[in-house]
Design a protein around this nucleic acid. Structure first.
Length: 897
RNA sequence: GCCGGGAUGGUGGAACUGGUAGACGCGCCGGACUCAAAAUCCGGUGUCCGAGAGGAUGUGGGGGUUCAAGUCCCCCUCCCGGCACCA
């Protein structure tokens, strides 16, 4: 055995050993229970960053841990290979996206292998390969025929200079990132997955995922956004041109009597109609159509609007309400029109304040109600008749000032009551809480639910509305006007319409040798690609040149791993049944909504096709915190440029790297692996923080991780802690006190580590391991020989999922066994944890004043007496008596003076 | 803007279910070894007052509940993730 720790040699040897043993091939006919451990596959951006290392180390730790617990583990890996960055790289470096992608995959695969991950590489999938995406195309044609996929128009960001559709992140301050041209919203035809048809199920099944973080489930629930509300129609007469009704959807029908105007989106027919004869309005509508489509931009825009001059009639009280065009109303959302209740909605209030529109309170909080009653009572007491007219804010303020100035000699009590009421109204503008209806005619006095039901019933009776359940979730548009993606398998025939490509013609292969110019879609310029015959009538037809959203590939890869080479179907049903669902999924928190929702949706689609069983793809989910970069942002929070923490060099945004804010993590993992080895890199990353916590990387602390491994090696070399039967429970009844204490320390650290493994808190597993080594180093050969061997074998096994190379090497070198992967997982020996005497903390009024040792089974009265006798307590009490004594068994005694 | 998180020493983080705040590391300070340095080992290290014993104070800010609050409740600030064409 070498005296020095030489990670390069031992890691190469250990990896070769696993390779020879085919140690990580997932067995198809194992009697052991299966454990499918999946880490989100990487986009092949070029090189590994710390986020990858963190993700894949977590996955490997869980895989190896479960393997030692007796599971048949499957841990696959693959490449999310289609996407925008490859096209950007092509533009920047003149390399075809395919070549760039394959070369990146080659390099990153080497990097992953050098980390010593226990991956079954025989299952590798690459989404840009026709063998993979042909099945995606196949499913598309099936779903198209079933009507789950349909076509409609939708808005995109159009760059009028580059004649290209831009991704949201390519629109910076309303301009194209390359051309600088002002971006326009343009409506184009696209294919959509009818995900809304599954909205109810996607929502309900979240309740059947106890292994998912609550945080993620909450985000998904809010995203699906089931709401109970009402359709309300605001009729208009021929004055507008023709008779009709403006339909809106609201979740607050109880505030209907407080509506003071209605607002429509710029794209709404009513806006277009009004703009036809109004140049100023037409210009405003055009202005609203400028800029990007991203919701964050729209929502943070300054609220602007313009009066159309049109009016609609309030369906219940017949009052005419003005129609405004407002940029905060979105066409693709609900009905593209809203009823505005400024008194009880933040955005409506802000808008009404800005344009001087009336505010009418119709919901009163208990406070407001009480203050109004008090005011009324005082008016009566002073001999005046209270005015119970509408609480239109302006009218109310006028009324209140009338009370103060026009009434003869108002009493002090009345003046106070007016001020209190006015003050409360001020506080409650806008009041978005539920409350009691006021100033709402026959509905006054009702609570939310009563008003909801009554108003909905009245609307329905008049044919002017009804209750409706609505989802916030929108259908999933998957058409992309880009080259580097999976071709949509549709042929457009002038005679037959949209015809799906027949099975025998699949896959529609994406040509790999192309030149990317940055203007327009490359496929649309390739007649050899798009010219084709209609599969139905044989006539001349045109192939669809749009490709699919890359979220589609990542929505089903987890299922493909079960039978990666299956050439007869999307999945081999037997293999899918064996391996699915995924037992543990691990990936970044940034995927909490979109990717995870789409994958859940796809599982249900595949289930309905009879391909997979079960309703959900991922049983347990671990969301990893982001690995941050220091990013400078503009006023809208968009990155202007990222700075590499380590050396301050700027990093290109939207360049050849994956376009992600997390692409640069300040520390290059390869440099750490080269200098210290994979075990140090893995240990360092697991020790830095718990997996779900976000982390800013710096390499301080890498040295400490390396030092720890070196100490382990040195300990093994100098102390040779081998035992014939490591892990055998030892009878400690005769052992000397120091040895008992050392054993207790080791087993209590082990107990903590096992508990932390269960919580996926690997940083404290590492600290427990460090404590064990600290204890072992305190042992002398003579007093604790066998304990050392026992303790060291615990240490190696505890660390083996995290630092597998050194653990395997020492396990073998010291003769514990051939393969640490086959060793049983260590469990804490409860007998070793027993203590006769324990330390108790003494508090006086909750403040720490001392401690005492007592027998572990000392009773309450005895402990109280011991505490009272304690000098520190005597001093604090200063002769006084204790009011109360709180004893927390095994922990503390608190004397309350 | 909306939805979801987060904030603990110089620093990464720990603290089971409301019960000794700062485990385990990094860094720093002092010491040993050495011709010297590196490596290694030993000791110390929240802040303030104090020679010391000890005391006060302390978990982003403000309030509250409790014998006891980093932990529970209310309000606020800042930071991070997502917002449907980045992946």
């Amino acid at each position: 055995m070498r005296p020095d720790y030489t990670p390069k040699d031992i890691e190469a040897a250990a990896q070769q050993h696993w390779e020879e043993q085919q140690a990580f091939r997932a067995g198809e006919d194992s009697p052991k229970p299966k454990y499918y451990c999946l880490s989100m596959f990487p986009y092949p951006s070029g090189k590994l960053h710390m986020g990858h290392v963190r993700n894949y180390t977590i996955g490997d730790v869980l895989s190896r841990y479960h393997r030692m617990q007796g599971f048949n583990v499957m841990q696959p890996m693959g490449w999310d290979a289609f996407g925008l960055p490859a096209e950007n790289a092509a533009l920047a470096n003149n390399v075809p996206p395919a070549a760039w992608t394959y070369s990146n995959i080659g390099h990153m695969k080497q990097q992953l292998k050098s980390l010593g991950l226990g991956i079954d590489w025989s299952r590798e999938v690459t989404t840009c390969r026709p063998e993979y995406y042909r099945w995606e195309q196949w499913l598309f044609t099936r779903l198209f025929e079933k009507g789950v996929i349909y076509k409609k128009t939708a808005g995109v960001n159009w760059d009028p200079v580059d004649c290209t559709v831009l991704a949201n992140e390519q629109v910076i301050d309303g301009r194209g990132w390359r051309s600088g041209a002002l971006v326009e919203k343009r409506e184009i035809p696209m294919y959509f997955f009818r995900i809304t048809q599954y909205a109810e199920e996607l929502l309900a099944d979240l309740d059947r995922l106890p292994g998912w973080p609550e945080q993620v489930k909450t985000m998904q629930r809010n995203w699906v956004g089931k709401s109970y509300g009402c359709e309300v129609e605001f009729p208009y007469g021929t004055a507008i041109g023709k008779e009709g009704a403006l339909k809106v959807y609201t979740t607050r029908p109880d505030t209907l009597m407080g509506a003071t105007y209605v607002a429509v989106a710029a794209e709404h027919p009513l806006a277009a109609q009004a703009a036809a004869g109004n140049k100023e309005l037409a210009a405003f509508v055009a202005e609203c159509k400028r800029g990007g489509t991203a919701e964050a931009d729209v929502a943070t825009m300054e609220k602007k609007g313009m009066d159309t001059g049109l009016f609609v009639r309030h369906p219940l009280n017949g009052v005419n309400l003005p129609v405004w065009v407002a940029n905060y109303v979105l066409m693709g959302y609900g009905e593209g029109a809203v009823m505005a209740v400024p008194a009880h909605d933040e955005r409506d209030y802000e808008f009404a304040e800005k344009y001087g529109l009336p505010v009418k309170h119709v919901i009163a909080s208990p406070d407001l109600l009480n203050k109004w009653k008090k005011l009324e009572a005082q008016l009566l007491a002073d001999g005046h008749e209270p005015d119970r007219n509408d609480l239109d804010q302006a009218g109310m303020i006028a009324y209140l000032s009338h009370v103060l100035s026009d009434l003869p000699a108002p009493s002090d009590a009345l003046i106070e009551a007016v001020h209190e009421f006015a003050g409360q109204m001020e506080i409650e503008s806008p009041n978005t809480e539920y409350g009691t209806l006021v100033c709402s005619g026959e509905y006054s006095g009702m609570d939310f639910q009563q008003a909801f039901d009554a108003i909905a019933a009245d609307l329905q009776a008049q044919g002017m509305g009804k209750k409706r359940t609505q989802f916030r979730l929108r259908d999933w548009g998957i058409s992309r006007q880009r080259y580097w993606g999976c071709p949509i398998p549709i042929i457009h025939c002038p005679a037959c319409g949209d015809v799906p490509v027949p099975d025998e013609q699949l896959p529609v292969v994406l040509p790999e040798n192309v030149t990317v110019t940055g203007t327009g879609s490359p496929l649309a310029k390739m007649p050899e690609f798009y010219r084709c015959a209609c599969p139905k009538c044989g006539g001349e037809a045109r192939r669809e040149t749009d490709t699919m959203d890359t979220f589609v590939e990542s929505s089903w890869y987890y299922a493909r791993y079960a039978s990666p080479a299956c050439s007869s179907g999307m999945v081999d049903k037997i293999a899918a049944q064996r391996w699915l669902p995924v037992d543990q999924y691990i990936g970044g928190i940034e995927h909490a909504i979109l990717h995870l929702l789409y994958a859940r949706f796809f599982h249900k689609l595949m289930r309905d096709e009879g391909l997979v069983q079960g309703d959900e793809p991922f049983i347990n989910l671990l969301t990893q915190g982001m690995a941050d970069v220091e990013v400078e942002t503009d006023a809208k929070g968009r990155p202007l440029g990222a700075k590499l923490r380590a050396d301050g060099l700027p990093v290109a945004i939207g360049g050849t790297e994956k376009m992600s804010k997390s692409k640069n993590n300040g520390v290059d993992p390869q440099a750490i692996i080269d200098k210290y080895g994979a075990d140090t890199a893995r240990l360092f990353i697991m020790f830095a923080a718990p997996p779900d916590q976000q982390l800013e990387w710096s390499d301080s602390g890498v040295e400490g991780a390396y030092r720890f491994l070196r100490r382990i090696w040195h300990f093994a070399h100098t102390r040779r802690p081998a035992g014939a039967n490591p892990g055998l429970a030892r009878d400690l009844s005769d052992a000397a006190q120091p040895e008992k204490e050392r054993c207790r320390e080791i087993h209590s650290a082990l107990k903590q580590a096992n508990n932390d493994f269960g919580k996926h808190q690997f940083n404290t597993v590492v600290s427990a391991s460090m404590k064990i080594l600290n204890t072992l180093e305190k042992c002398s050969d003579t007093d604790s020989g066998p304990a050392i061997a026992d303790g060291f074998s615990i240490l190696l096994r505890l660390l083996s999922p995290i630092t597998p190379h050194i653990a395997q090497t020492l396990w073998q070198e010291l003769g514990y066994g051939d393969d640490i992967l086959a060793a049983p997982w260590p469990e804490a020996d409860e007998a070793a944890l027993e203590q006769d005497e324990i330390e108790l903390v003494i508090q006086v009024n909750g403040k720490l004043r001392g401690s005492l040792r007592a027998a572990k089974d000392a009773d309450q009265a005895m402990l109280e007496n011991l505490a009272l006798a304690h000098p520190a307590v005597q001093k604090q009490l200063a002769g006084g008596a204790a009011k109360k004594i709180v004893v927390v068994p095994g922990r503390l005694i608190n004397v309350v003076a």
